[in-house]
């Protein structure tokens, strides 16, 4: 399944809905979107991965790159993911300690709003 990308703003946080497969072929599109959002001044991002069917290390690299970009502006990039097969990749690579990973978009937003 091809990568599907969408984004919208909720409570001042840009939500990026991702669906399908994030791999060496499709990850550049996600990278371009994250760069575009940061360029537009969106420094608080939540990437919703609930509809992601496949994620590889190229996708991880793109997410880490996005995190690096928003942190340069004191921003944040959190993830929404409850799928065990996706979470496993974050655990293997130790990235569960790097990203905030939440069960729902609303919980991710709540957490960020409480920090303000």
């Amino acid at each position: 399944m091809e990568l599907k990308l969408d984004h919208y703003n909720k409570d001042g946080i840009e939500i990026v809905d991702v669906g399908g497969e994030i791999d060496v072929y499709t990850a550049p599109r996600l990278r371009e979107l994250l760069i575009e959002l940061v360029t537009q001044g969106h420094y608080r991002l939540v990437v919703n991965m609930e509809k992601v069917e496949f994620l590889d290390s190229t996708g991880l690299g793109v997410l880490v790159g996005g995190l690096k970009r928003v942190r340069a502006h004191d921003g944040s990039l959190d993830l929404v993911c409850t799928q065990e097969r996706i979470l496993k990749i974050f655990r293997i690579t130790g990235l569960t300690k790097v990203f905030g990973i939440y069960e729902t978009v609303d919980k991710a937003i709540e957490e960020r709003k409480s920090e303000r």
Binding site: G61, V64, G65
Partner: peptide, 8 residues
């Protein structure tokens, strides 16, 4: 991992 963002 954050510093080495290109370390795919």
């Amino acid at each position: 991992p954050v510093a080495g963002a290109a370390a795919a």
